[in-house]
Amino acid sequence: MTALLEVRSVAVRFGGVMALSGVDLDVQKDSITGLIGPNGAGKTTLFNVICGIRQPTTGVVLLDNEEINGVPTQKRSAMGIGRTFQRLELFTTLSVFDNVLVAAELARVSNPHAVAREQIELLGLTDRADTIAGELPTGSARLLEVARALAGRPRLLLLDEPASGLDDVETQQLGVLLQQLKSLGITVLLVEHDMSLIMKVCDQIHVLDLGNVIASGTPDQIQHDPSVIDAYLGAVR
């Protein structure tokens, strides 16, 4: 296996605060990689660095062995990076279909309508294609974000808490979908608080705490790593 995404000693400083302090991690091709950690650990900041919304203070990000540090956000989607947002960023006044269609058109695929239909079908949103996105219930809205990201034909898909607000059945379906994406050759980096989902679908997990990677390994290794447990539960008093 080779790494699709490599993050090398990435640090981000907000004023006097180090949001990330020298993060190193790899995301293997065709894997589902989990990124977990307590609140304020720096997970969303790392996502923002990877898709160019924020420049790292130091360090580099490599996609397929190519440095992408200076590449502006809007060009990274053409390089194969797609993402969803923890706080929904849907085009709330467009229909579900148009949300995905815009993404397909921006990605300059040859037949955007067909691509949009395909993604909507994949995420099971066909019945709601004409609904205005702002009126969707949470579960469907999360799925729409995924469909929209997929319409850009990403190689690397960054998912920021896709299961928050989903019920148990929807979460299970999401897990199945993630496996499906993996078999389609899409690499997934997943930030999620639902540990049962993370532990079930991930091949590899990185744990972030206070801007550092404190552990990396398989779900089983992570669940029994004492430093991870300490990071979550706090030091014994």
């Binding site: 956000t73 809007q74 990274r76 989607s77 960023e89 849907l90 085009f91 990605a107 850009g152």
Partner: peptide
């Protein structure tokens, strides 16, 4: 209008 952030990440 709805989300410049999402637009940019999709290549706008």
């Amino acid at each position: 209008k709805d989300s410049p952030l999402a637009g940019a990440t999709l290549g706008m």
